[in-house]
């Protein structure tokens, strides 16, 4: 046990109290993130720069999506956080523990469900989960209790004696989730958990994850399905080619996504109008207007509003917003890669 400084000398009470308070309220406790990445970079041995300096903050209790096409760097980032990949530079903190200074504390906080199956195919299901608990220092008896709970949660308890190789694809994924949860991590990280899983299992996995998130586990998942991120997560970062392209709340992002912007050419001179009802707009030049139509507003309504103000539309085109363009670009890129 570390000794409080000055405790041998006759007491400076304040000093001693503040020393002990450090343990109850570690510095930064109030603003402590579940995950903090600062300027994280990774260059693989072959010289490929997979992460070009990413910053990320995930709050405790969050359900966070890291969205990006194949090859964006999602698994690389996850790999660094979970000690499977060594970083080139930058900073990683998990619940206030620095990865470089206290790797064991960081590892103890995390449960990882990797993208690819990584258990011993020839081991019985229960043994895989019990052993993982053992690696986290949980005594055998307790490990069995926790493994049973974890396996029951994921409906695998009945198959506990079977070799992992005999499980179906969906069950193997659930096995990895059960294994990741056995030591009750504060942060659960799932790398593309539903890739290649059929729709029914995907839905039940979603509701399971929502449930454990509600019970307090912070969850980060990577995905390349927008729909998955949209239906599960509160906050989101979009990663593309090793850079964070967007980092915001899902709500804000969806609002942006659901806004459509139109560019209208107007017969009349626009300098004299100064309002357009509920529509957000901006004048591009004397005869050109950009208008946003958000969810709940209609294009008919927009035309009415223009007509009421004596404005006549001569042509109109759809202005794609930046995010949509980003998404479409990403999806095309990943489709090209899938097709290869």
């Amino acid at each position: 046990m570390e000794q409080a400084p000055g405790s041998a000398e006759k007491g400076d009470l304040w000093l001693r109290c503040s020393y002990h308070l450090r343990f109850a309220f570690p510095p930064g406790a109030v603003f402590m993130n579940a995950l903090l990445l600062q300027n994280l970079r990774k260059t693989y041995r072959n010289g490929f720069e997979a992460l070009k300096g990413i910053d990320l903050e995930v709050a405790p209790g969050d359900f966070f999506a890291l969205l990006g096409p194949n090859g964006a760097g999602k698994s690389t980032a996850i790999g660094i956080v979970s000690s499977l990949v060594t970083k080139t530079s930058g900073r990683v903190e998990v619940f206030g523990h620095d990865l470089d200074r206290n790797p064991e504390a960081v590892k103890g906080c995390i449960g990882l469900v990797p993208q690819e199956f990584n258990f011993n195919q020839w081991e019985p299901v229960a043994e895989i989960v019990v052993n993982q608990a053992g690696f986290y220092g949980i005594p055998r008896k307790q490990a069995w209790i926790k493994a049973e709970r974890s396996l029951r949660q994921l409906e695998l308890w009945d198959r506990r004696r079977e070799q992992a190789v005999s499980l179906s694809g969906g069950m193997k994924r659930r096995l990895m989730i059960a294994r990741a949860l056995v030591h009750e991590p504060r942060l659960l990280i799932l790398d593309e958990p539903t890739a290649g899983v059929d729709i029914e299992i995907r839905r039940s996995m979603w509701s399971f994850l929502t449930e454990i998130n509600l019970r307090g586990t912070t969850i980060i998942l990577t995905t390349h399905y927008l729909e998955e991120a949209e239906s599960l997560c509160r906050n989101i970062a979009i990663i593309n080619q090793g850079r964070i392209a967007e980092h915001s709340s899902m709500k804000r992002l969806l609002n942006q996504l659901h806004n459509q912007a139109f560019v209208l050419s107007i017969e009349q001179d626009l300098t004299r109008i100064d309002e357009l009802g509920d529509y957000r707009w901006q004048r591009l030049d004397e005869h050109t207007l950009e208008v946003e139509v958000s969810r709940g507003q209609s294009i008919n309504g927009l035309f009415q509003a223009l007509a009421q103000r004596g404005l006549e539309v001569t042509s109109m085109r759809n202005k794609q917003n930046r995010l949509e363009q980003l998404f479409i670009g990403m999806l095309n890129a990943s489709r090209r890669r899938d097709a290869q």
Binding site: L84, G108, L112, E116, N118, F119, N120, N131, F135
Partner: peptide
């Protein structure tokens, strides 16, 4: 354990 990747079970653990 490298080939089947379950060495990762150890690498992510506080061992």
């Amino acid at each position: 354990s490298k080939y089947q990747r379950h060495v990762e079970e150890l690498l992510i653990s506080p061992v």
